[in-house]
Amino acid sequence: MNITHHPDTVWLVDYACGTLSRGFDLVMAAHLAACPQCARELGRAERLGAELMMDSIPVAVTTRPTALREAGSPVSAWTQSRPLNGLASANGNPVDLQTLVAQYLECGISALPWRSAGRGLSIAKLRATQHERVWLLRAAAGTVLPRHTHSGSELTLVLKGAFFNCDRIYAAGDVEDADETTDHQPVVTNEGECICLAVTEGPLRFRALLPRLAQGYLGI
């Protein structure tokens, strides 16, 4: 996998600090599993965190290490905070991002509730909360997506195929990092269908009326 577009450093800092919401965390984990360069940068972000942690003013604790050891392993009941974490060990190896995301979704990508959004485009909404929306986007070769701006951050990870935007090609493994300053109109390349995993902070703002009308129905 030849990854050329990466999320901004702030995303790696947020990932290292554990401050991302689930959707952004998912996209970052999937990209990190495929991108050795970002995995190295994450290593530095975690190392910085470790240095800052070790620089804290020490506070005496009453816990004794022997007591902990005897306590057995209550932590085994931890919920898995990052379902894709284990896959990060695949760093440097080609990762099938579709399989990876399908694992997280516990179903094949085709089994998702796809809804047609017209003009060669289908959308499957995976998660919608007050703060973020996560969806998969599947577009046929050559599809021109509706032009839109954002009301917050958006990360789009290409799982399959490629799209053009602003003279750049985003291919499998690449992340397009957009925010409220970005006005864009992605166009799928002619080679084949394109599947992307996208997470946005706020609703998209479409330029044209029709996609605006469809927005409520599609839940984007």
């Binding site: 070790m54 804290s56 020490p58 506070v59 009453t62």
Partner: peptide, 29 residues
């Protein structure tokens, strides 16, 4: 580690008792 981690957890805003519980979980892990 324990005193530093405890200090760090308290700096992140946990009160000392909560921080020590989290610390225990971390050290067991």
């Amino acid at each position: 580690f324990a005193p530093k981690v405890q200090g760090y957890l308290q700096r992140t805003g946990l009160d000392p008792a909560d921080a020590e519980n989290v610390l225990q979980d971390i050290m067991i892990a």
